[in-house]
Design a protein around this nucleic acid. Structure first.
Length: 581
DNA sequence: GGTCTGGGCGCG
DNA sequence: AAAGCGCGCCCAGACC
């Protein structure tokens, strides 16, 4: 009834730590089985790659790829069974018995592993399994791999729109490769510049346990202004009590509540908080823990967020403060090509909903300016607040005032997100454009809704249930947009990676020092942040890399939304350092 | 000693 | 006052 795609090639774990290559047969059983030692694998795999350009089926990129990359070998395409399992097991478009079969294969649903800072790794362990944060849990032997592949192919083939799920599986799997490659290549990191920024803001590096000079000064000012000479600023409850004693009426110590209060303690306190954050999150300890040989090598976690966005594990790769962006710096003779998409999420919404009016507002560069130009609102700020309110479910304040206006002007777009919210509020499932679905509402949520519908429900129970229903509505409203934007970004990166891989290597004397065997002689992806990429490129390839980034964005739009009027303009810059403006 | 939770804040 | 989504990380405090 169904034939296995002919370009699949299986890489699995053999007995005694050996590797095994095979082809999936039409009956689901492996054929053409080859066993080999691990040190033979990169050479053999590279030969198959060159000759056949297969799609490699493996349990988990993290099982195999780090070792291959260290040996200078990578692959064009894969099918990552763990990631695709995670998608298919919830996908609403997959028939329920196929989903049940996947659910029964519970070992494929492994939790995200912790990252290990390089300082805790042996130097030789950098590319071992342990170092990639991957416990040995997924059943990766040949039979299990084939069985799971069969389940997944059946699930996709039986889905309402197999082509979308196939595209999603390919994009997600490509992300698995890219995440490993990003770690192997690393972010070129200028430690001297990072330290200069720390000293500029905090003062000289303090001895262990001591506070930096600037923080100590600010803390003294705060204690003086509050008349509390022994106060610790690092304990929110104590700080809150001290603020109350000083007559400052706040309900928390958070900065948005403190801002705007007129008291001599506030300015130094806010400054202290800012510095404290810099020190603890990205101070000298962070450099020592995460930067080695001029590279920051974060662990990216594709599919780590329910919506399909990537998460990161260790070092906070997706939360690097803007203040430290200048430390992201190209190697000598190289440059950074940085690009981010302007207003990705509203553009994705316009494309998904085929809202022509919204597509037209975005044509050119700035969607918010387009909304102003169309006469919908008076200022760019209002346009932005309104659109974010539409995407997030804002009801009060400025966004609550503006969203109804957007509902008149962009009826198709607003209907799509409003409908997603309605479905979520009653416990339903919504899906992204390519078919990633929300997990079912958890049992506590459903129990609260049931309780509120009993005849003897208290008003507290009813109010709590209404609130959690609205919470879930905002989640599902945002899910379809954030998740589809993540799909667009995956396609963008996958297409970009393909283009960069075709670049000619530069001369050996122009090689980057720390990017590893595969990436030191041609432009390569170095950083990814939801709607933003940075490519590290030899100077001679910078313009070509910029063109590739733009071309990949155009192609991604057409791939996901054939015939769409929506464009995806980029802010792009070629600079030595990744600073904005 | 360890683990867990919430506050707070960085990113999109 | 964070109004409105999704994260990770650090710290203090609570608890075992």
């Amino acid at each position: 009834m169904r034939s296995v795609p002919h370009d699949l090639r299986i890489l699995a774990r053999g007995r005694d730590g050996r590797a095994v290559l095979a082809l999936p047969g039409d009956d689901g059983r492996p054929v053409g089985i080859e066993h080999m030692d691990l040190d033979e694998l990169p050479g053999r795999l590279a030969a198959v790659e060159r000759a056949e350009h297969p799609r490699w089926v493996w349990s988990d990129a993290r099982d195999h790829l780090p070792r291959l990359l260290a040996a200078g070998v990578t692959v064009e395409r894969c099918h990552d069974l763990r990631l695709v399992h995670q998608i298919l097991v919830h996908a609403a478009s997959v028939p329920s018995d196929d989903r049940a079969a996947l659910l029964a294969a519970a070992a494929w649903a492994v939790p995200i592993a912790e990252a290990t800072a390089p300082e805790q790794e042996g130097a030789a362990a950098l590319f071992d399994l342990e170092a990639t944060g991957r416990p040995d849990q997924v059943p990766a032997d040949l039979d299990e791999t084939c069985a799971e592949l069969s389940r997944q192919l059946r699930a996709i083939d039986g889905a309402q729109d197999p082509s979308r799920l196939r595209l999603l599986a390919a994009a997600e799997s490509s992300g698995a490769i890219i995440a490993c490659e990003l770690r192997a290549a690393g972010i070129p990191w200028d430690v001297a510049e990072h330290e200069r920024i720390l000293v500029e803001h905090l003062g000289p590096r303090p001895s262990p346990g001591a506070a930096p000079a600037r923080m100590a000064e600010l803390a003294a000012e705060v204690r003086e202004a509050l008349g509390d000479p022994l106060l610790s600023l690092d304990s929110p409850p104590r700080l809150l009590r001290a603020l109350h004693r000083a007559g400052i009426d706040v309900s928390s110590t958070s900065k948005w509540e403190l801002e705007g209060i007129d008291h001599p303690a506030i300015a130094p306190l806010l400054a202290y908080k800012r510095l404290s954050r810099l020190l603890t999150a990205n101070g000298w300890a962070w450099i020592g823990g995460w930067v080695r040989d001029g590279r920051y090598r974060p662990v990216y976690v594709p599919g780590g967020v329910v919506t399909g966005r990537w998460a990161s594990s260790g070092g906070g790769a997706l939360q690097i403060p803007r203040l430290l962006r200048p430390a992201l710096r190209a190697d000598p003779g190289w440059t950074l090509v940085s690009a981010d998409v302007s207003q990705l999420e509203p553009r994705v919404l316009a494309a998904m909903s085929r809202d022509g009016e919204m597509a037209r507002a975005g044509r050119g560069t700035d969607l918010y300016a387009g909304i102003v130009a169309a006469g919908v609102v008076a200022t760019r700020q209002e346009a932005k607040v309104g659109v974010l309110g539409a995407l997030y479910g804002g009801t009060s304040g400025d966004s609550g005032r503006i969203v109804p206006r957007l509902r008149e002007v962009f009826p198709d777009a607003m209907r799509l997100v409003d409908r997603a919210a309605e479905i979520g509020e009653v416990g339903g499932t919504v899906s992204t454009w390519l078919g990633r679905s929300t997990p079912p509402a958890d049992e506590r949520w459903s129990a609260a809704q049931r309780a509120a519908h009993q005849v003897d429900a208290t008003s507290t129970e009813q109010e709590r249930a209404r609130r959690s229903a609205r919470d879930r509505g905002r989640f599902t409203r945002n899910f379809i947009v954030q998740g589809t934007a993540a799909e667009w970004a995956l396609a963008w990166m996958a297409l970009l990676r393909q283009e960069l891989a075709a670049f000619e290597p530069v001369a050996p004397e122009l090689a980057a020092s720390g990017s590893g065997p595969l990436f030191s002689r041609r432009a390569h992806l170095a950083f990814f942040l939801h709607d933003e990429v940075i490519v590290h490129a030899p100077l001679s390839q910078a313009e070509a890399a910029a063109a590739a980034i733009r071309d990949a964005a155009d192609q991604a739009g057409r791939l996901l939304f054939p015939g769409t009027e929506v464009d995806f303009p980029l802010d792009l810059a070629i600079r030595e350092r990744a600073v904005k403006d």
